[in-house]
Structure formats: structure tokens, C-alpha cells
């Protein structure tokens, strides 16, 4: 996986709670191999009409949103299905950071395995960011994983929490399975003493 350290980029506000992974990527695209252009399938049915033309009212089709690398979303973003393709779709579109007051548990786990940073901030802070991005679509958000901060231009730096192990994996782009297999002796010892 690609390491993530910091970025300053345009952002897309998703001003709706409980956005589910079926919306992020409809099930009919789950049959595609990883090499398929998953960015094209992102929010497919709310972003495009059945004939493939864009829905102008959808936020991803607006200026500055097409090159967004940050998603700022409302509560419970990416709830529902375990489909990792939801992460692939965001990642292939170019998104590297998702900020929300809360996220689906499985989505967060999937994101951390693909170099997509998820950040949980208090609801009023996220609300302020969404309002600011709606008022000024060309605003760029700065995200710094090393120092664990998020900020808008001329705004305060908001600190965020991240598990130290997850942080290291992301900063260095490490393969998690190698890490776990590094503790193979412990797995073997567990199996020896474990009746189940």
C-alpha cells in the first residue's frame, strides 16, 4: 500500500448522514476485478443517470470536487455492507482522507488496509467544515498525519486520535500480513495450548 504522510487538497462535502456503502458502490460492480476503474463507479447511481450522463446536482460533479482528495461527511458515513470496493472506489477517484463524526466499523478497517486515512472529529467541527466548503468550494484542507492535525486556511488546527500502530502502517505503507506473520511463533504457541 502507498504510504500517506500529509496533503493539502480540495475537498468534497457529503452533507447527508448514514451514507451507506451500497450508495458508494452499487452491488453490480462488485464482480469487477481490482484492475477495473473503480473511481468511475463511485456513487454511480446518484452521480450519473442511467444513460451515463452526469447528474449536475450531485456534489461530485461540481467544480473543484472532481479533483477532491478529501471527503468531509456527516455522521455514520459508509455504514452497511462490508464491501471493500467502497474504499477502492474512493481511492481510485483520488480520495486519500475521509473525515466524519463517525464511520461504519468495517469501512474504517478496510480503509486502513488501503492507504485511505479515516479521521473522526467532533460533530460541530465537521459541521463547520461542511458549511465552509459549501460556501467556498475552492477551499483546500490540510491534513498532516505525522502531527495528527486537520485545518482549513486561516482556521485552527484540529487534532485527531489514531492508533499508534495504524499510524505507523500508513506512514510507512507497510504490509500488515507480514507484520502479523512476524509473530508466527505466538500464533503457533496459541494453537498448541488451545483446545478449540
Amino acid at each position: 500500500m502507498e504510504p500517506f504522510r500529509k496533503l493539502t487538497a480540495h475537498a468534497v462535502p457529503i452533507d447527508q448522514p448514514n451514507v451507506d456503502t451500497d450508495q458508494i458502490i452499487p452491488a453490480r460492480f462488485l464482480q469487477k476485478p481490482r484492475s477495473a476503474p473503480f473511481g468511475d463507479f463511485l456513487f454511480r447511481d446518484v452521480r450519473f443517470n442511467a444513460d451515463g450522463s452526469e447528474k449536475p446536482e450531485f456534489v461530485l460533479n461540481a467544480p473543484f470536487r472532481r479533483e477532491a482528495k478529501v471527503v468531509v461527511a456527516e455522521d455514520n458515513f459508509a455504514c452497511g455492507s462490508s464491501r471493500e470496493q467502497a474504499v477502492w472506489a474512493l481511492y481510485d477517484f483520488g480520495v486519500r482522507v475521509v473525515i466524519a463524526p463517525s464511520l461504519g466499523d468495517i469501512f474504517s478497517a478496510n480503509a486502513s488496509k488501503n492507504g485511505l486515512l479515516t479521521i473522526v472529529l467532533p460533530a460541530p467541527v465537521v459541521r463547520g467544515m461542511i458549511d465552509a466548503l459549501k460556501a467556498e468550494p475552492d477551499l483546500e484542507i490540510a491534513v498532516d498525519l505525522e502531527n495528527q492535525t486537520v485545518s482549513l486556511p486561516n482556521g485552527p488546527a484540529h487534532g485527531f486520535e489514531i492508533d499508534p500502530y495504524r499510524k505507523r502502517l500508513l506512514l510507512e505503507g507497510l504490509d500488515e500480513i507480514s507484520f502479523t506473520l512476524g509473530q508466527l511463533d505466538k500464533i503457533e504457541a496459541f494453537e498448541k495450548t488451545y483446545a478449540g
Partner: peptide, 19 residues
């Protein structure tokens, strides 16, 4: 019992464990 993503499926196949 709970759901996992595809990267975690690979992790379980390789290690029989989950983080």
C-alpha cells in the same frame, strides 16, 4: 461473529487471526 473486508479475508487466510 462479524463481517470483514477483503484485505482482512486475506489476513485471516494467511494467519488464521484478525487484528
Amino acid at each position: 461473529a462479524h463481517g470483514i473486508g477483503t484485505s482482512e479475508v486475506e489476513h485471516v487466510l494467511a494467519t488464521q487471526t484478525l487484528r
